[in-house]
Amino acid sequence: MDDLDDELRRLFNDDRLDVHSEPVAVEAVVSGARRRRRRRTAVTGAVAVVALVGAGIGLTHLTTSRLEDTTGALLTTGTSATSTPTSPPPVSTVVSTVTQTVNAPPGTGTPDDTSTGDPGKPSSNRPSTTLVPESQPGRYGTLALGMPEAEALETGSLVEPSTPADAEQRCKAYATKSVPDANAVIVSPAKGIVRIMMPSYAKTPKNVGAGSTVADVKTAYANAAQSGSHVTVQMAASPPWTYVFEIDGTTVTTVFLRLAAGDCTTA
């Protein structure tokens, strides 16, 4: 039985396995890599312009009822949106309504929060302690945590081609129209979108973003927990997710929305 083991080891140790002629030039690989990177950047840049134009147009068409759905990580403007006291809509219904609302709307929270007119106030059926995780849905723009890859691609927000997000190449990483980073969105084949990186200019509904201090984060989110080089804030939406604020000393550098039940090693 072991002779096959030995034979295999011998075969794989054989000098004839060496490839002597250099069929791959180092320069060709380096320039190929550069081309790939440029192509990715160019595509990202082009769609970013389109997205900005689209954002302008889209904003003018937004209705109040739409604004209530754009509770992702958006800049707070204090708009008083009216809404019905429903639970956060299923991820799949959000897609078409949440269009490029980077600088949009209502203070916060879920639709049931906004009905109170006070973004910071928990809804009546929740304990009124600030330590309770908020129930804001985990989404940014058209993308939502847990959204299947096919659906995410349909939104047109992802910039193809994807790259492997982990060594196993099980999960995929995409740049997005608003974030020209190869790892802007991480998608798991099983869990859908497991991580979304917010653009550097974006703020959470509580006005925290890149450039904010750790103290700002903790002030805004009472349940913030610092661990090493990041601060996490759990959100009790369905599905549950977490804000992850990457910090450099005392300043937030990047903000992620991360699915609690994600299964990608890089997310």
Partner: peptide, 12 residues
């Protein structure tokens, strides 16, 4: 999972 978050983007 959390620990890996800090890697990646910023470096690139």
């Amino acid at each position: 999972m959390t620990a890996v978050l800090q890697l990646g983007s910023a470096v690139e």
